[in-house]
């Protein structure tokens, strides 16, 4: 599913970061571990096409990310990826439901309200569908972000420090949900984190 080889990335005025080669099969999960500055966010963004691959290659399914033009990459992200970030970054101006429906809208897919309701129920947020984002607790907001990430049934879910801001109880819960929902949707989950609490959850890991 995902194949990384000879990948390097260089920021201006900095030494180049080299990443190990690895392969992740469809439905497998992967943990990218490392301290801050180790390049795990860079790798995640390279995998997600948020950064352009300049040296080496990343193949996702049949696509070679380095060869995709920017509009093609935008389209590809919308159709195949779901992102979850450390801060949940929901759009404050929109309700929970519309935050979810942004995903199909921006990916150019037909809106599916039943799917949105279904996913919210899965994440135990069924009663929050019409709530405003600023009425949610942090744990709830993170779960809405997860719902949004999986709404389009992506092949790959990329999560950047999804649990770092959460307490142990919420961490446990969110990590469990992420894995469960990724498995249920047959998606590959890649988590970049320095959160040692996740080590026990995902066996497949790369240390940066």
């Amino acid at each position: 599913m995902i194949q990384v080889s000879g990948l390097q990335y260089q920021y201006p005025n900095a030494t180049a970061l080299s990443f190990p080669d690895f392969v992740v099969e469809k439905g497998e999960h992967l943990l990218l571990l490392g301290n801050s500055g180790s390049g795990k966010t860079t790798l995640l963004h390279l995998l997600g096409g948020l950064l352009k691959v300049k040296a080496g290659s990343i193949r996702v399914g049949t696509a070679d990310l380095a060869t995709l033009s920017e509009p093609e990459m935008d389209r590809f992200r919308g159709r195949h990826y779901g992102f979850i970030f450390q801060r949940n970054h929901l759009i404050q101006a929109l309700s929970v439901k519309n935050n979810l429906l942004m995903a199909p809208f921006l990916a150019g897919l037909p809106p599916d309200e039943h799917r949105a309701e279904h996913v919210l129920h899965q994440l135990n947020l069924g009663d929050k569908i019409h709530a405003r984002v600023n009425q949610l607790s942090q744990g709830q907001a993170q779960r809405v972000a997860i719902a949004r990430a999986i709404l389009n049934k992506p092949d790959v879910i990329l999560a950047d420090e999804p649990t770092s801001a959460l307490d142990d109880q919420n961490c446990e819960r969110v990590a469990g949900l992420l894995l469960q929902i990724a498995t249920e949707n047959n998606a590959t989950l890649i988590v970049a984190t320095h959160d040692q609490r996740l080590k026990s959850k995902i066996q497949n890991r790369i240390q940066l």
């Binding site: 997600g48 935008d74 970054h89």
Partner: peptide, 16 residues
């Protein structure tokens, strides 16, 4: 800024 970046991550193009 974050809204816009998130929208890009969800597939929105620059022109959009």
């Amino acid at each position: 800024r974050y809204d816009l970046a998130i929208m890009r991550s969800m597939g929105a193009s620059r022109p959009r």
